[in-house]
Lab assay of single mutants.
Amino acid sequence: KVILLEDVKGLGKKGDVVEVKDGYARNFLIPQGLAVEATKGNLKEL
């Protein structure tokens, strides 16, 4: 699961917690600054 930092077409809006494949999160969303891993600490910051 990841928390979206920006609106991502076809996935969700900023602040949404979405389930995506590990590779998509690690190789695209997180490096592009579009999402962060949905850890307990990150979820509390919402």
Results as ranks from 00 to 15, higher is better:
A35D: 01
Y24M: 06
L11R: 02
R26P: 07
Y24C: 07
Q32N: 13
P31D: 15
V36C: 10
D22H: 09
N42Q: 08
A38T: 09
E45V: 02
G15Y: 09
K44G: 15
P31M: 15
V18Q: 02
D16P: 00
L46E: 15
E37T: 09
K40P: 15
E19R: 09
D16N: 06
T39V: 08
K1G: 04
D22F: 08
T39P: 11
G33P: 00
K13E: 09
Y24F: 13
E37I: 14
D22G: 08
L4M: 04
V2N: 01
E6L: 14
K13D: 06
A25Q: 04
G41K: 15
V8K: 02
L4C: 01
K13W: 09
V8S: 02
E19M: 13
A25K: 07
A38R: 03
N27E: 13
N42I: 06
K44L: 15
G12K: 00
I3M: 06
V36P: 01
Q32A: 14
K1H: 13
I30S: 02
K44A: 14
G12I: 00
L34E: 02
K9T: 12
G33R: 07
L11Q: 02
E37R: 09
G23W: 13
N42K: 07
I30Q: 02
D16I: 04
L5T: 07
V18Y: 03
L34R: 05
A25F: 08
V36W: 03
Y24K: 03
V18L: 09
V17F: 07
G23F: 11
V8H: 04
T39G: 08
A38L: 07
K13F: 10
V36T: 07
E37W: 12
E6R: 12
G10T: 05
I3D: 01
N42P: 06
K1P: 07
F28I: 14
P31R: 12
G15M: 05
V20I: 09
L46Y: 04
I3F: 05
L43A: 05
K21P: 14
V18S: 01
V2C: 09
R26E: 14
V20M: 03
V36I: 12
L34K: 11
G33F: 07
P31C: 13
K21N: 14
A35H: 00
K9I: 14
L11D: 01
N27V: 05
K9G: 13
E45C: 09
K9C: 10
L11E: 01
L4H: 00
I30K: 03
E6S: 13
K44D: 15
T39W: 03
L34W: 04
G15F: 10
Q32M: 13
K9A: 14
A38M: 08
L46Q: 15
K44C: 11
E6D: 11
K44H: 15
G33T: 02
L29K: 00
A38V: 05
L29W: 02
R26L: 12
R26F: 12
K13L: 10
G10F: 08
V17D: 02
K40T: 14
Q32F: 10
T39D: 07
K40E: 15
A25C: 08
F28P: 03
A25P: 02
K14A: 10
Y24I: 09
Q32Y: 12
P31G: 15
A35M: 01
I3P: 00
K21F: 13
D22A: 11
V8N: 01
K44M: 12
F28K: 06
G23N: 13
G12T: 01
G41I: 13
K44I: 14
K14V: 07
T39N: 14
I30Y: 11
E19T: 11
V2K: 01
G33N: 10
I3T: 06
K40R: 06
K14M: 07
L29Y: 02
L34T: 03
E45G: 12
K1E: 06
L5Q: 07
K1M: 08
E6N: 11
L46F: 04
L34Q: 06
T39L: 07
R26C: 08
G33K: 08
P31N: 15
I3E: 05
L29N: 00
E37F: 14
V36G: 03
K44E: 15
G23K: 11
G41T: 15
L11F: 07
V20D: 07
A35S: 02
G33E: 05
V2L: 06
V17I: 11
K14R: 12
E6G: 09
K21T: 13
G41W: 01
A25H: 03
V20W: 01
E19Q: 14
V20G: 02
N27A: 10
K14T: 08
V36Q: 10
V36K: 12
L46V: 15
Y24H: 07
V18I: 12
V18M: 07
E37N: 09
L5R: 08
N42R: 12
V20T: 07
G15N: 08
V2F: 11
F28L: 13
G15C: 09
E45H: 10
D16C: 10
R26D: 14
G10E: 07
L29D: 02
F28M: 12
F28V: 14
D16F: 06
V17C: 06
K40A: 14
V17G: 03
V18G: 00
E19N: 11
K21S: 14
N27T: 10
Y24L: 09
L43W: 04
E19I: 13
L11C: 06
L4R: 00
T39I: 06
L34Y: 05
D16K: 04
R26G: 11
E45R: 07
N27R: 10
V8W: 03
L29T: 01
G12L: 00
G12Y: 00
K44Y: 02
K44R: 08
L43N: 13
N42V: 06
G41D: 15
D7T: 11
G12C: 01
D7R: 05
L29P: 04
L43S: 05
G23M: 12
N42A: 11
F28D: 08
V20L: 05
G15D: 05
L46T: 15
Y24V: 09
E45N: 14
L11A: 03
K13G: 08
I30V: 12
V36E: 08
R26I: 11
D16T: 11
A25D: 11
L34M: 11
L4P: 00
N27Q: 12
K40H: 13
L11S: 02
Q32R: 08
N42W: 01
D16V: 05
A25T: 05
R26N: 13
E19K: 11
K14N: 04
G10C: 15
E37D: 10
G33Y: 05
V18E: 01
L11I: 11
R26H: 12
Y24T: 05
D7E: 11
G12A: 02
G10S: 07
